[in-house]
């Protein structure tokens, strides 16, 4: 009764308030396509987001949406998934949200390996608060908060994830819809924590990138530099050392699946854990069971 035939349109709700040309449109479209291709029902998806332009994605995606606090999508999403393993849980947000204020949660979510997907729309800038330097901004980046250029080096999310045992790591580009849909599908299908970092350009605060004293349009710049690992038949996505080498070789400017490891998810380690939603367990325990627990206090 509740299952309906789905298409990308099934997952469309409001029209986004993002700036025209924003990379996040591509991510939203890819997510809608991927959900449809997977045949997921909207009510079986829970999209948990942080704060920022990208955190608004669940305002525009037709599913259960929980729009949380800045940097806090991952803990909430892990709680949701553990409480109801039947849900497809996706956390999402931006680079400031995930790699700045939420960086602590990110590293631990990676190693915990709860079966869920994390999609980061990485644009190297704080968009919603009007163009400040972000944790992935390059050294020297000028903005209102770093008028003389940022002194800090950028966070390397793919390498952080790799070093901490993330079981699925991929990077996409919001302008390459076909690959992005494919990566989202693989990330969701992966049994464990999957990180999908998406280069999702901000056309308002980072419209151009300076290269050899020349300003290049941000989309153009990414297109020019991104190296597609998926197109490399020799690349072994199950080799951690090779993944590190590739990231260093291309300064993390790659697309495709960087690393995948088949290891038990957090849930699989938990004793007594079932795929029964916990909402069905909140019933009184039998007196005999309670007596048994009480026995240790006698």
């Amino acid at each position: 009764m509740s299952a309906v035939l789905v298409s990308p349109k099934t997952f469309v709700s409001e029209f986004p308030t993002w700036c025209p040309g924003c990379g996040d449109f591509g991510v939203l479209r890819a997510l809608q396509n991927a959900a449809a291709k997977l045949g997921l029902q909207p009510h079986d998806i829970c999209l948990v987001t942080g704060i920022g332009c990208s955190g608004k994605i669940n305002s525009y995606f037709n599913a259960y949406g929980l729009h949380t606090l800045h940097g806090r999508s991952l803990p909430v999403a892990q709680g949701v998934k553990l409480a109801n393993p039947n849900l497809t849980v996706i956390a999402s947000g931006g680079d400031g949200d995930g790699y700045g204020i939420g960086a602590g949660h990110f590293m631990h979510a990676v190693r915990r390996n709860v079966d869920m997907t994390y999609i980061v729309m990485d644009n190297q800038v704080y968009g919603l608060t009007k163009g400040q330097t972000s944790p992935t901004s390059p050294t020297g980046f000028t903005s209102h908060t770093t008028p003389y250029g940022s002194a800090e080096g950028p966070v390397r999310p793919l390498r952080v994830a790799l070093a901490n045992g993330c079981s699925f790591i991929a990077q996409g580009f919001s302008a390459d819809l076909k690959q992005l849909v494919d990566l989202i599908i693989q990330a969701i299908q992966h049994k464990g924590f999957s990180l999908l970092n998406v280069q999702s350009p901000c056309v308002t605060w980072r419209e151009t990138i300076l290269e050899d004293d020349q300003k290049i349009g941000v989309y153009e710049w990414w297109k020019k530099h991104l190296h597609n690992l998926d197109a490399d038949p020799d690349y072994d996505r199950h080799n951690q050392a090779a993944a590190f080498a590739k990231l260093m070789e291309y300064d993390d400017i790659v697309t495709g699946v960087v690393y995948q490891e088949d290891r038990p998810s957090y849930q699989q380690y938990l004793r007594g854990y079932t795929d029964r939603p916990m909402s069905e367990m909140a019933s009184p325990l039998d007196d005999a069971v309670l007596e048994q627990f009480a026995e240790q206090f006698k």
């Binding site: 829970c46 948990v48 929980l66 803990p75 909430v76 999403a77 892990q78 709680g79 949701v80 998934k81 553990l82 409480a83 109801n84 849900l87 939603p277 916990m278 909402s279 367990m281 909140a282």
Partner: peptide, 8 residues
């Protein structure tokens, strides 16, 4: 909070 939201 996430677990409660999901019904636990």
């Amino acid at each position: 909070i996430g677990a409660n939201y999901a019904g636990a």
